[in-house]
Simulated assay, not measured.
Amino acid sequence: DEIKRYAVKDILPRIGSMHADAITPADVCTMIEEVAERSKSVARRLFEILSVAFDHGVPRRLPANPCRVLNVSSIVGTQQRRERVKLTLDELRAALAALPGLGRDNELAVRVLLATAVRKGELIRARWSEVDIDAGLWRITDENSKTGAGFVVPLSPIVADWFRELRELADGSLWVLPSRNASYRGRRRGEDHIGETTLNAALVRLGAKDVRDFSPHDLRATARSYLTDELGVDVIVAERCLNHALGGLVGVYDKSDYLTHRRAALALWAQFIADAEQPRAANVLPLVRPGR
């Protein structure tokens, strides 16, 4: 589905009518440059897709792969590694307060990313068949996991309620986050999931005062930092909450999924988010009146 979207939107309109053996490195370069003006990351992905397609064709009928003589970094520039943002408590409160301005579907998606610490793509490609709201479990499949190893995400009651609302908004779609518009000809609204850059674009227009620019992946970094720094969650449990592989001897001998521990940790984190947004009244009564 991902490759089909890229093909229909960017590849076919530019070179779809050409014979494959007539496509030159210059044609590929022109296409990648045009797409890079919109998104360098999409341009890189397109280059990868084209290269694989031409590699498939070379032993069959193509004389050469025109991508082989090109360096995508020379076309779109080198990727600059961006330092991850951990939102401060004040930034977190301001961002949460501004979320309703993005529309309820985007707001709920951002909240789920923050509270579950999953990768953006894992939520975007999630299907309702993989979510058991009543049991508080969301199964991310091997195919949908960046690491290639599926895992189960425990859903706290707060997050489960957000999924219930998302299910109503999905209006019968197979996708947790269905498309709002037809992605390409022949597809109806909701038959595909939202685009890979939809949530990034939403956060760009967040407009929260005194909040640094942040991406969906920064929500994951923020969750990871708060789990250990503020909530005292064990490092191994926090790493497993993010589905990080455990290195060294721990990774070799420790095969536990830590589901019970992760459920408790993410419930604690979800409550922290709720308290940051709407602080609960103190339940301690002073024995001495202020000023005495």
Rank of each mutant, 00 (worst) to 15 (best):
K255P: 06
A126R: 03
R180F: 03
R125T: 07
A149N: 13
R14V: 14
R280A: 15
I158G: 03
W175L: 02
E37N: 06
I32Q: 00
V8R: 09
A208S: 05
V211A: 08
L137C: 07
L92V: 05
G77I: 05
E230G: 02
E277P: 00
R212N: 05
V58N: 10
A202D: 07
A53Y: 02
R167G: 07
L268F: 00
C241V: 13
I194P: 05
R84N: 09
D90N: 11
F151L: 00
E277I: 00
P279S: 12
Y258Q: 06
E91W: 11
V131K: 06
I23L: 00
D171H: 11
N200A: 01
D257A: 13
H244F: 02
W269M: 11
H217K: 10
G121M: 09
V35R: 08
R263N: 05
R119D: 12
S17Y: 02
Q271H: 12
F151V: 00
A64Y: 07
Q271E: 15
A221P: 00
R93E: 10
G121H: 11
G291R: 04
L268G: 15
L174P: 00
G291M: 04
D10H: 15
N243T: 05
A160D: 03
A221M: 03
H244S: 04
V152E: 09
N106Y: 10
T147F: 04
V284L: 14
G136H: 06
L113Y: 13
E165I: 08
P154M: 07
N243S: 15
K146F: 12
W175C: 10
L174F: 00
T222E: 09
L166K: 09
K120Y: 01
R93I: 01
P25T: 02
D142H: 08
P100N: 11
L227N: 02
D257K: 14
R180K: 15
R262A: 12
L108Q: 04
P66S: 10
V211L: 12
D234H: 08
F47V: 02
L287K: 10
A201H: 14
D142S: 11
F47P: 05
R81T: 13
L87A: 07
G172T: 05
G172D: 12
L62D: 13
D142Y: 10
G190L: 12
R111C: 10
K255A: 12
T260Y: 05
A223Y: 04
I194V: 13
S51Q: 13
C67D: 12
R5E: 08
D1Y: 01
V250P: 01
R45V: 03
E91Q: 14
L287G: 04
T141P: 08
R240H: 06
A117Q: 06
A22S: 08
L113I: 12
L137M: 13
P290T: 02
L108K: 07
D192W: 08
A26W: 00
L99Q: 02
L137D: 03
L177K: 05
W175M: 07
I194Y: 01
C29M: 14
R289H: 10
R212E: 09
L92C: 09
T141R: 13
E34H: 04
S225F: 05
C29Y: 00
L12D: 10
I133D: 03
R45N: 10
D142Q: 04
D90L: 06
S145F: 11
A281D: 14
G251L: 06
A53S: 12
T222H: 08
A223H: 03
L268E: 10
R45Q: 12
H19R: 15
G247M: 06
A282S: 14
L285H: 01
R38K: 15
D105G: 07
R5Q: 10
